[in-house]
Amino acid sequence: MSNNNGTLLEVKNLRTYFETEDGTVKAVDGVSFALQRGETLGIVGESGSGKSVTNLSIIRLVPNPPGRIAGGEIVFAGQDLLQLTEEEVRQIRGRRISMIFQDPMTSLNPFMKISRQLMEMTRLHLGHNKAQAYEHAVKMLEMVGIPDARARVEDYPHEFSGGMRQRVMIAMALSCEPELLIADEPTTALDVTIQAQILELIKKLKQRTGTSVILITHDLGVVAGMTDHVVVMYAGKVFERAPTRELFALPGNPYTRGLLRSVPDPTAEQGKLYQIPGLPPDVAHLKPGCPFAPRCDRVAEICRQEFPPFVQLNAEHYSLCHFAAEVYRESQKESSTSL
């Protein structure tokens, strides 16, 4: 699927902090990853792992105050977005990078007709006049599979179902043919059959337009079917980064292994579903050492004292763990015995 014609986005050592009364919350702390043109990157993690903040940072929409981007680089098509003026970033938002959010029920303006919300995009970025923008809006709604688009464009968001609203969001996000689409848990608020339709739609439109996609989710099943590379985040840090196949077959991090074990397996015998014990840590009060140590099934003394290294396991596979190499070898052994 990947046709590597260069890097579109490179996030380097991104740090986004929130100042709260409880102290500085390091929501994103030293995150790095890269996205090739035409690729889909999955970012996986539990709630509060920093995946959404990472992506809000990319289009510089972290609410400030209390949030601020404390450091790092976000190189998009050769320029560091963190160096641009607000005005310059504005011209990238919606035009070259656009976003779809989790809850389609609240992400569209309830007071505005769909037509106006769609036309706003192309009038602003593509210089459409009213008639052109209107035609474009109808065309986009047809493209995302809204039946009777020409009539529905005059409706308000509350007249659409959840799945249809998410289609409208996708139509809006793609209306200026952006180079990058960031989908932040686009299916979490939808029921399962609609989820599949929306993911299928994103996949189809991605192939048609060549847009690169960042897909944020906590659902490993979604990642498996959709992405080329996966970044696993925990406590504001990248715990593991690998091509999707490799990550699923040979996880090199105890946290990833835990996540993979907690996916329900319909072929398995009846039994208890595995879950990682404990809760995600409070990122305002991180102790020294590995943030996952209190929940890790192979924790050792060193994990509680020293922050783990980011170990390179092969060309494209990295893992943040003192025992990355061992975990990786175990995964290799398991996969060879299960074959």
């Binding site: 289009i59 929409l61 504005r90 011209q91 990238i92 938002r93 919606g94 035009r95 656009s98 976003m99 959010f101 609240t106 992400s107 569209l108 303006n109 309830p110 706003e120 995009m121 602003l124 970025h125 969001m169 809006m172």
Partner: peptide, 9 residues
Amino acid sequence: YIRTARSKG
């Protein structure tokens, strides 16, 4: 939806 509006540029 205000976040959406901002993300539109």
